[in-house]
Each structure stands twice: as structure tokens, then as C-alpha cells.
Design a protein around this nucleic acid. Sequence first.
DNA 1: TTGTATGCGTTATCAC
DNA 2: GTGATAACGCATACAA
Lengths: 374, 374
Amino acid sequence: MAAGGGHGSGPPTIYDVARHANVSIATVSRVLNNHGYLRPETRDRVLQAVRDLHFVPNGPARQLSSGTTKVIGLAFIRPPEDEMSSVEEDSLLFTDAVVRGAELAAQRLGYSLLLTGVTEGDSSNEVAMLTGKADGVILLDRVLPEKRVAALARRSPLVLLAGSGKPQAAVNVRVDNVQGMQAMARHLVSHHGFRRFAFMAGKEGSPDSTTREEAFTDMARFLGGEVEPSEEGWSADWTTAGAYRATRARLASGAPLPQAVVCANDQMAIGVLQALRTAGIRAPEDVAVTGFDDIPIARHWQPPLTTVRQPSQQLGSAGVEALVALIEDRPNAQRDRVLPTQLMVRASCSCPPPPYPEAGLLDTGPWRPDSSTT
Amino acid sequence: MAAGGGHGSGPPTIYDVARHANVSIATVSRVLNNHGYLRPETRDRVLQAVRDLHFVPNGPARQLSSGTTKVIGLAFIRPPEDEMSSVEEDSLLFTDAVVRGAELAAQRLGYSLLLTGVTEGDSSNEVAMLTGKADGVILLDRVLPEKRVAALARRSPLVLLAGSGKPQAAVNVRVDNVQGMQAMARHLVSHHGFRRFAFMAGKEGSPDSTTREEAFTDMARFLGGEVEPSEEGWSADWTTAGAYRATRARLASGAPLPQAVVCANDQMAIGVLQALRTAGIRAPEDVAVTGFDDIPIARHWQPPLTTVRQPSQQLGSAGVEALVALIEDRPNAQRDRVLPTQLMVRASCSCPPPPYPEAGLLDTGPWRPDSSTT
DNA sequence: TTGTATGCGTTATCAC
DNA sequence: GTGATAACGCATACAA
């Protein structure tokens, strides 16, 4: 109720401005919003009053009256604080990049971003509340189970980012997992001649992991390769530590190793590499290892990681654009959008390193994007 | 005005809930906010109605009425889009980390974060507008000139993050640039015996850059070293690309090189390293290079970067905490807060690498924090 | 061209 | 315990 900060007797309102300029509040509102035509003289008087009083419009009042907030809510999963290795910390870059892209697009379109990190167990209706504060909501990577998504979508414009792409309830913007993994399979089978693979899956039931696994497995088999069932222990929970443990266990079993381990993300690929190194197995000479995402350290790792790049920033931007189209009811709104991925060939698949390992780093950074698809 | 999304006839209000539960809106408001005492029976009826109707309170209305938004505005400088190298884009930018920390603290304290990137020329009163939408505002680095800061502080609780610490108008939360840079100077002069330095400054007028430069210069000179004036071209705009260009220009001038280039942040250090490499100059053998921030890729770079770690996330958290204390008028509010920094000694200063370069990567990753101050 | 009056959905102050 | 009802600050339909 009270202004709260000891900042005088509350901020000035349009009433104050109106009095100061000898006009009505309607006139003030008009000049503030460039509506109707006013005598320039009046206009100037109002603007002067605005400056004199350091008037700033009250957001909530404006929003309440206009029925629109010009705010976009973005919810993302915040990992538990305790189990964050440095590699995990790096992985947050994906989220950060998405946020950055979203903020940029929002700004361009005249919206602001309301950020909401939700912890795994969600607990409260934190994200439902977003609905009341924003004109639309973006959900990043499965912050909500599908049922609740459908419910949300009924109440507010909604965009799902980096999800499975299945929910019909909302607009989906995601990345082309299938294309990326197919390119990977082609490269490993056709270029390197590998036949025996293992696929390191992410968290059980994760759509991203499932999609990537299926895409790789299908294509590899189609090309004559074979993939160990992930029940053989090739499964972790997206984390480096998990993949490290899984790989060590697998090594201890004594079963013959595959020629290549294809991982559902970069963090796990790094875990696999660590485990191999610890066991004295060379990569990529003895076993090739690949990842997915192209997190920043991927190209700085030893060996530099062959992986699939996904455009994180664009994902954020595209999400906001889709949402705004939805909010503003534009007909050209695409119900779904799939962003391309790109195979980044580096050394961990046993491709030879380029002459100047870091020459490309001022540019987009790959040693060499895959060219087999061009 | 209109509901806008074709989502029925507008979201339900407390009136709808009241009707559905056969009570008055006052009662609904009471159960929603846990005020006064109500008959449990009534309470349940209302809650049931809330569920039935999927009611979510209208934020703006609530905010207008209560006079508080429970929102914190965070403004940061957004680098020009065209000037974003992969290092800028991919690396956990200092800004991203701060945002993350801020979001976390805000959530804990019951606030949400409203993000506003401001482009260099500021142009509009974007950040002034924040004042009308949030209970308080955080300004990251140098988003506003000092005069406007003072004006803002008069109108709203205000926290300056990573600023000079000078403005008395607002609360300052920052990092101990001086201590970090002094440690760096001591290490380079006393341990390595370097005498001739250059300092690569960040954006002109940025308090962080100025402070770091002064701290390093003063200490280095005190220890008998000399530092080229930054007018000699050792100045960029915090970016890798800028530092790369500046360094190339400097090399082209033919002037003798310093023994070490100390940079105001990691991104620029990387730019310097790139430029040196391109020119066939070895680092750290011919010229040592150091950074500031300890962004994640710093320790993965070749050579791994000697730098000063600053607790970026904590900076964000501390900023929010200080702001909330200000907003809620708590007396224990510290006017100023300075977070410690830590010198991270790696290879780019020509210190020898540790036996297993990547051994620490599953942990927090530094090779070796500086021990000269202990 | 400008002023008057009403409504936006809540919270909170009264009465009952 | 619960129900009317007056703000909150702004936008806007309708008058003038």
C-alpha cells in the first residue's frame, strides 16, 4: 500500500501530470500513447509536466486497463544446486543461450521476459501463476508433464521449446534430432566403416533421448550396422558422472567393446571418454565416441568432440516469435517449427584434426561441418 | 481489452469463483491470501471452485491493488548482434551467470525477474520504464551514466551490480577487482619476473575496466614494472573480436611487444591469444596473456588461461538480496557489499601445466588457485 | 481538440 | 465469519 521505500509520497500519477499541465487525465493518456490529435501546444505542455515530475506510467495499472501485459513468461528447469559438476555447469549454457535468444527476440517485438526457474519437483503452481502475469508462456524442455501442459494451453498462449514435439495442445519449436542423428550414423558407418555400436541413452523416458536413440539405431541398422541394446548398461541420466559410472561398469563386465559409442548428449560423451582414459583405452583409436548439442567445451576437449550442433539461441528467438504470433493472433502462425541441426565432425570419431586446430574459433568454431549431406 | 487468444470469454475472475462458491469476492480474496479466519467449510468450497474454474489471479490487478509487484527488474547491456563471435555466443557470459544467480535468489525470496537487455545507445527510457513495472531495479555494469543513476535511485530502490562502487545514491554490490588484480600483478612481477606490461582495457568508461586497470597498473609499478598506456591501442570493448582487432593493429605498428598482456576480461584475452597466434607469436613463450572472470572455457583453452575468478552467480544473488532488503526496508540492509575474487594460475602466464591436464574437470576445475596470498 | 465518466480485477476497510 | 464497497492508476467510449 505505502510506497515502501521512503521515496516521498508515492510516485506521481497521470492526475499529477494533468494538474501540472492544466489538462485532463484523458489528454495526458493521449499524449503518452500517441492517440488522437492534440494541439501541439497542449502536447508540449504535457510532455513538460511529465519531465518535471519524472513521471513514469504505472505498469500494473496500464496492464490492467489495457488487458495486455506485453510480458512473456519463460519457465525452465533449474538443476538441483548440489549436483553440479563443472561440465554440468557448462551445460547450463544451453538454457542460458535459449534465454538470451528469447530476450533478444522479445525486445525486438516489444515484449519483456519474465524468467521463472522451476526446480525438478515443481511443487507449487509457479508456472500456472505465470499465466496471470504474462500474455503467453514458453516452457523449456519439459518443465511440466503432458497433462498439465494441455491444461495450461487451454488457458494461455503456449509454446513448448525443445520438447518431444508431440503435444498437439501447444505450438512446438524444437530441433531436428532425427536429421542430426541420421547424419551421424551415415558418417560413422559410411565414412569410417564402423559396424558395432553402442548408444548411451539419457534419462529414461526422455523424448529427446528416445528420439535420438531411435533415429541413430534405425539408420545405423539400415546401413548394415548393429547397435547394442541400451539394456546392456549403456544408459545414464544425461550427466557426465552417470555416463562415467555406466561405462566403468560396462568395462568391468569384460564384454567386447563396440567400435563407437554414440551418446545422446555431450556431457555423457565426456563421461565416456573419461572412463575410457581411466581404463587405459584410447579414444578415438580404440573406441570412437560422439556427442550431441555441441556445448562450448566440445571443441576444446581432448579429443575434440564429434557431435551434432543445435542452435540454442535461435531456439529461444523462434520460440518467442511463435508465441507472439500466437498472442497477436497472426494467421501466418506456424503451428510447429523444427530448426535444423548440423553434424560437426571433429576428432573423437577418429577423423584427422585439421592443420590449425583452433583456426575457426573466431568464426562459428567447427573444424568442419559435415559435407556428406550437401 | 478482448481476451485476444480466442481462449473462451476471458479468464475467470474472483467474481466467477465467488458465484461458483456462493460467497462474496471478499471471501474469495481471503482464502486466496490466507487472511482472517473463515469457516473451513467455506474455505473448502472456495478452493473447490478455484480448481473447478482453473482460476489464476490476475497479476496486474493484484499488483495495482496491493501496490507491490513482487517483480525485480534486471537491466544489462546487450552486445551489438553483429559483433558476437562464437566465444561471446557460446561461453557462459558473465551476464548469463549473473542473471542465473539473480533468478535463483529472486525465486527464493518470492520475487520474479524481469529481464531487459539494453543496447548500447540506450535510446529510449527502457530502463526508466522498468521502474513502473518492478518493485526495484538492478543495473548491471554500466547501463546508465551516473547522473541518470542518481535520478533513478530517487524514484525506486536501486542496486548497482559490478559498478564502480562510487555512486552514493544507490546500493552497490560488486566484486573485489582490486584484490584480484593486485594478486595478478604480484604473480606476474614477483613470480615470473616480468617488467613490461600492456593492459587491454574494456569498454571505455566502464567502472570495472577502469578499476582493474588502475589496480593492476598501480601494483605493477609499485613492484617495479611498467605498463604501456592504454592509449597505445590496448583497448577494446569487452569483446573477443575487438581485442583481436586491437591486437592485430598493435602488432602491425611494429612497436616492441610487452612481456605480458593483462586483459580486463577473459573474452578479450582469448582475442589477444588468437591475434598472437595468427601472427606466429607464441603464447605464453613469447608473450604471456591473462584474463579476468574465469568463464568456463578459460580452463579448456589452449593455453589454459591464467585469470581472476569472480563469483558471478553470487554477484547476482547478492544483488537481489540487497535489493529486496532495500525494498522491504529491512534495517540490516548493507549499503555496500564486496565479494572476494581469486587468482587462478594456469598456463597462459607461462606457469607449467599440471601432470594431468584434465584431471580436475569432473570437479570445479581450476588447476591451482594462487597460494601466494595465503 | 479536449473533458467526463466508467471499467479493468484485486485488496482491504468497513460494517453486519 | 462474511458481505458490500471504495480505492489502485490508467485507457477509452462518449460527450462537448
